[in-house]
Design a protein around this nucleic acid. Sequence first.
DNA 1: CGGTATCCACGACGATACTG
DNA 2: CAGTATCGTCGTGGATACCG
Lengths: 100, 100
Amino acid sequence: MEMALAAIAGRWTTLILRDLMSGPCSFGQLRQRLPSLSAKVLADRLRELESRQLVTRERLSGFPTRTRYALTTRGRALRPLLVSLYETGTALRDLADLPR
Amino acid sequence: MEMALAAIAGRWTTLILRDLMSGPCSFGQLRQRLPSLSAKVLADRLRELESRQLVTRERLSGFPTRTRYALTTRGRALRPLLVSLYETGTALRDLADLPR
DNA sequence: CGGTATCCACGACGATACTG
DNA sequence: CAGTATCGTCGTGGATACCG
């Protein structure tokens, strides 16, 4: 459990992973999908995910620079966990305030 | 996903929930199972879990005082998530350092 | 476009001591 | 036994400004 929690630790991390689940993204694309997230925090998260070997970073040639972030095999291994987070959230919502 | 993450937020929270999954516990029993956790932090977590309606607190009569913590229906709804955390952790361990 | 560099505020965590 | 009170530290997240 600690390994999995460490993988998704940090605010916004799960949302970034979710976006990458549907395919590689550039830095700017991620910013567009997560507008309330500053560049610094997004860069922090991506560096963390890279160091955890969940995401790869690839600089594309040309100018202006483009960067491509993609999930690794380890990163894709998190998909069932994200699904479980979603399903659990739904279950909690359905049980909100009603029973014991 | 935010609902589920909010439910398990906080250090030690998942471990406390896991212990309660196997049945109600007293404060002291939880301390025994989580020796590296101070009384203050355990009390903090239990108050949070209570306010999130995931755990109930029941004071038993007699002296010295005993307290019984138990999961609510909402709390039990977290079981699949804890299982998924465990399985994902195992999967990450199996993929450690090896492939892309 | 894709980031860094600074700086700050706030809150979580934890140690220690004490109490009904 | 089951907590509360107090206090300090440290890290995280965020705002803002700037750079190759």
